[in-house]
Amino acid sequence: MTQPASPARPITEKSPPTDGDKRPWWSFVVRADVRTLSLLGVLAALVVIGGITEPEAFLDTDNLQLILTQASVIGVVTVGMTFVIISGGIDLSVGAIVALASVWATTVATQDYGFAGILFTAVMVGLGCGLVNGLLIAYGGMVPFIATLAMLASGRGLALEITDGKTQMVTVDGVLKLGERDSYVLGIPPLVMVFAAVTVVGWLLLNRTTFGRRSVAVGGNAEAARLAGIDVRRQRLYLYLLSGLCCGIAAFLLIVLAGSGQNTNGNLYELDAIAAAIIGGTLLSGGRGTITGSVLGVLIFTTITNIFALNNLETAVQQIAKGAIIVAAVLVQRRTATT
């Protein structure tokens, strides 16, 4: 790092700011792009639809809390997924990691260590799986699709091996209590607070840190990033570690929510998380994406599921609606991207 007697002095002198440098703090409201606004619009429309079709059941506080709680688990996974996709990768193993972490953290042996044991195990299993993914992809030169597909298969297999297909009930009071109404603060479930915290940290990480910049650079043009002196491989490793960490946190939330660990947990989370990121405006080819968009994507999906359930519509119809939303979102983005 040291540059002895550097003759070409680095640029340090200040230059007068020009227009557009100083913006009032509230300018983000104005600058909110078409995509974010349209996602908010869709979410608002869904709330209206929910309110009209099932005015009592939908707008009930319990129900709104339920929506947010359900969004929390997949939401945390989606934040990690968003980073991976922005960097030009993909993580198909998130659902399997959630399942594996949730059953490993709820074995009888782990539960002996209480609250901390469960939390620690869930997070460590998530990080461990992320480490394997990251090493295979960054240093083993494997294609992310293949490496994480392998992790999906073996993670699910290991989860089945651990549980033998049985549901593992949680007996630690502290964990169970977190999911109960008594722990709500100002009506907000602790799970939702974790989701909010992960979202905020994720947003800051992406928009305000060198880590975020490097992730975007690697996804936008890996070769240019390498030639600019970024350690692309290490960055990739970190990104899959981050995704694994998010899965570990999500697994813990799921344990709290369900009061148990099951090897079938997190089924198809990979698809939901990818879909939420995509409708949130993340480019599947990498280089562009936002946490805000992804979180709105998650909220939209969860709200739809809720409304359909309240109206006693079949899961099949639900799936079709989700598919239609993905297509619509991408079409809208294509249009706005060209302007």
């Binding site: 650079a217 936008g220 240019a224 030639l227 280089g287």
Partner: peptide
């Protein structure tokens, strides 16, 4: 090989 084409000049310079 040189530029992050999706990004601003600032980010390309500071990378």
């Amino acid at each position: 090989q040189g530029l992050l084409m999706l990004e601003s000049v600032t980010r390309n310079v500071s990378v």
